[in-house]
Design a binder for these strands. Structure first.
Lengths: 200, 200
DNA sequence: TTTGAAATATGATGAAGGTCATTTTTTCAA
DNA sequence: TTGAAAAAATGACCTTCATCATATTTCAAA
């Protein structure tokens, strides 16, 4: 940990600031101290697909660090954030000399791999309504007790649907008493029902 | 390698034989010597979503080995195969003592993570026709020079569509001269066109 | 406080693709 | 070789959801 602290460079990031772009080469990892970051890909027509939303305590960007290939995803803050950067070399050294860290990383990679399998299956087999419920459950964990605070467009890009469709479904959820909306902030009133819609 | 050889247990598997099921606990990894294995998830209505097709030289099942949680995917041979099993303990020991192996594994995990991000974006943003083209490109690599030999159902479950829809699209591709079909075996005649349909 | 731009919302429409029913072909074991 | 079951193929229909157009609200800067 001393080693980490000696080598990390922490910075303040404002809202909608980019950490890295698709196509650029990874030079290190980003540790989120405070704030939130979306990890996404741009499809052929430029529409974003959000793959993951990382919150305080998570690391972003080590995925492609080991493969010496350019990023295929981009990352950007969703809100004001405090984020530290650890260079590739430092990080790899730490991993070599620290089995606990190493195992933690591998465990984390494995978990994400499983999460993405679920994501793929959901995308392939569920309706947008079901996917929205599923997504809200994920966001509920990410935002903890806070209301979900994402633009309609980001939310649509996470669910994988058109913004208009998402807005219509939010309206349905509101009418069904599942959520409460104050401008852009969404609070979940009936978690049970979300689970039952999401299926399983 | 000596160590590996001393501890692995190789077996012959016939077609459609299960390696592990969702919900079971990982006890080791499977190395495919010969043959092919599908890794899939069953959605709520039992429909399979194929996440990955592994061929000779690949390992299957180490993903959840580090997380001490049950498999969320299942694996099953697609054809007659020869597959070795290495127990969790042996494998973890090997990883601890062999940095080269270790880095290879992490690299592989990272690569799969990126592949799955692409998969998600494709699922979310592309038409079934485009996804079929994309899937055929992947299968082209897996089957190398051999014709693609998958049931229509498996193919549909990889693309993430209904079997009927897949069959109709295959017919289109056939009529457009992109593929040639002999009963269940599919040969690609026009790779270029596949790329242009898949987009990018 | 006004104002313009961005975000959100709503309506109309059509196409993509899922579902169900049925037929044809293939496979494989007796 | 044949018969039954599984797989593949085709047709009809209908729901879901994307797209385009437009209206309304929110927000921040002047």
């Amino acid at each position: 940990m001393e080693h980490v602290n000696a080598h990390k460079a922490c910075n303040y990031y404002k809202k909608h600031q980019s950490l890295f772009l698709e196509g650029s080469f990874p030079r290190g990892v980003f540790c989120i101290n405070e704030g939130m970051v979306k990890v996404f890909q741009r499809g052929d027509e430029g529409k974003e697909q959000i793959i993951h939303i990382a919150k305080a305590g998570e690391m972003v960007g080590f995925r492609s660090m080991f493969s010496e290939t350019p990023y295929r995803v981009a990352a950007e803050t969703l809100e004001e954030s405090n984020i530290c950067f650890i260079s590739k070399d430092d990080f790899l050294n730490m991993m070599d000399s620290n089995p606990v860290l190493r195992n933690g990383i591998i465990k984390e990679l494995s978990k994400e791999l499983s999460d993405r399998a679920d994501f793929i299956t959901n995308m392939a087999q569920k309706s947008v309504r079901e996917r929205l419920a599923f997504t809200m459950i994920i966001l509920l964990e990410i935002y903890d007790k806070e209301p979900i605070n994402l633009s309609r467009e980001d939310l649509a890009n996470f669910v994988g649907t058109a913004t208009e469709t998402l807005i219509r479904l939010l309206k349905d959820f509101k009418e069904e008493g599942i959520i409460e909306v104050h401008t852009r902030k969404i609070s979940v009133l009936n978690k049970e029902k979300l689970f039952s819609i999401a299926g399983k």
